[in-house]
Nucleic acid binder design. Structure first.
Lengths: 141, 141
DNA sequence: CTTGACCTGTGTGTTACACGCATGTTGTAG
DNA sequence: CTACAACATGCGTGTAACACACAGGTCAAG
């Protein structure tokens, strides 16, 4: 199978398949006649595995580790559990950050509703941004 | 003032100040003797403005636009309002995505609690990931 | 005068691709 | 049989906002 075929079967774009080959996530055979990459059923299941892992929040780097780990015959499962637990914590933190950003933005729009646009001078760039007051944490990431 | 001074006063790391100079967000003078960047009070207020804008979700690119827009004498406020309203929508979408990821990850960990680690063979890389069923009913907690 | 803290510019790495380039290959319509 | 579209190849660049490293120049104090 060629790139387009395997991409269609795995429901991925050919670009992504090429990218995964490039970074070593999949290792297709080669057609000796023309140098084209040759994919088989095992590549498809690997691609499907990668996509499943991605929907669970694993990064490509982590997936690569999982794959090569399992190639050595040892179970990647303990690693898989460890990673996802850390990711849950990280994600909760980022969610909190984004939620507070969302609140901040909504508050700003609300405050600005009753304010006119200002003309910039030497002291002021944009009175909206400069005048915005927020009560609690200013955290951004 | 030198980088370290202005960074301390604006409560930013010197690296970030250098980065902002590099991408043209601030344009410090130069010491003709040694080529060092020379910052003054206007740079500090610019840095503070940039940080305020960032806490409101504006990207550095957008902030650059806002700054140069206000340099032409026209009010950046309409643009500022437009950007934040779009950002609120985008952010809500990303929040939804991250929330569903969070739920998915938590469901996975829950399912996996009752499962043993598997040994990899030709057919299986990691039974945990492969067996995870993405049941939409579970998502509604 | 040496030392150490600071400055300079530039380059690389981070994530997961998207897109473009120049070039080589294949399949098919005329 | 050949022209041409549609595919393939590798490689390079760009994305956001820095962090960090490197090699070298500068400055104040002892």
């Amino acid at each position: 199978m060629t790139v387009r075929d395997v991409a269609t079967l795995a429901n991925i774009s050919p670009e992504v398949v090429r990218y995964y080959s490039r970074i070593g996530l999949i290792k297709p055979q080669r057609n000796r006649k023309n140098g084209y990459k040759l994919y088989d059923a095992s590549d498809i299941s690997r691609l499907i595995f990668i996509r499943r892992a991605k929907t669970l929040g694993y990064t490509l780097k982590e997936i690569k580790n999982i794959l090569s780990h399992s190639n050595t015959g040892t179970s990647p499962c303990p690693m898989v559990r460890r990673i996802i637990e850390n990711r849950i914590d990280d994600n909760r933190q980022r969610l909190d950050d984004m939620l507070s950003l969302q609140t901040r933005m909504e508050n700003a729009v609300e405050q600005w509703k009753h304010m006119p646009d200002g003309t910039p001078d030497g002291d002021s760039v944009c009175i909206l941004i400069e005048s915005f007051t927020h009560d609690n944490n200013m955290e951004v990431r």
